[in-house]
Nucleic acid binder design. Structure first.
Lengths: 100, 100
DNA sequence: TTTATATTATCACTATAGCGATAATTTGTC
DNA sequence: GACAAATTATCGCTATAGTGATAATATAAA
């Protein structure tokens, strides 16, 4: 199954898991679900319910919103803001206050 | 089941549906799922898979990301930016260009 | 290589997701 | 009121989600 355009649920779980350098086993433990299940999710053999994907997101240390967020789809303004340094964000905050 | 803090899946589906002034029947048709199923989702009797929630989001005319997005959790900067008028966004874009 | 340990693969079983059919209820219009 | 059309509620059925047990495989140390 596809999430938007970019990848499947399973590929995305695997991506986040590998980013954190943990095994399927470890993720299952952190999430409170079975190892065989996490495996099935990653392989696309099973379609998780929201409830169980939320458990896995918890194990990954992210929210469901994070899981489904797609930076590619941000508008230009949002993309630009995400690239700012903390100092630039300070400047921006000041600028926004001057607008109101 | 809770999504974040604010509400359940079912309540959220219902919220979006009522915002659009359509019946459960109509949403089911638009989504390509059964009426009894949409009903069960809204009541919390069944936990939808991501796949089927995506169908329902399609029927609602939103993305999964939209469904799970929670304005409450935005940081102050993001909140401020979302409130801008188109004119103010123009100014902001110009300001951001001056930063880089 | 052998033994120990951690990880991944397999599979049968139970619980539940999701549907179709249809009954019950609501919302009109006459 | 009576009747029709749409919406919602109920329920049994099939497909599949999710698990536990354990087999297979990989990793590493001696």
């Amino acid at each position: 199954m596809e999430i938007g355009f970019f990848t499947t649920i399973g590929q995305r779980v695997k991506y986040f898991r590998e980013q954190r350098n943990i095994t399927v086993n470890k993720l299952a433990t952190l999430s409170g679900v079975s190892q065989s299940y996490v495996r099935d999710i990653e392989l696309g053999n099973k379609q998780p319910t929201i409830e169980f994907l939320e458990y896995i997101c918890y194990g990954l240390g992210i929210t469901l919103q994070d899981f489904f967020s797609d930076d590619e789809k941000d508008d230009d303004l949002t993309k630009a803001i995400k690239k700012l340094t903390p100092e630039q964000r300070e400047l921006l905050t000041a600028f926004l206050q001057s607008l109101s």
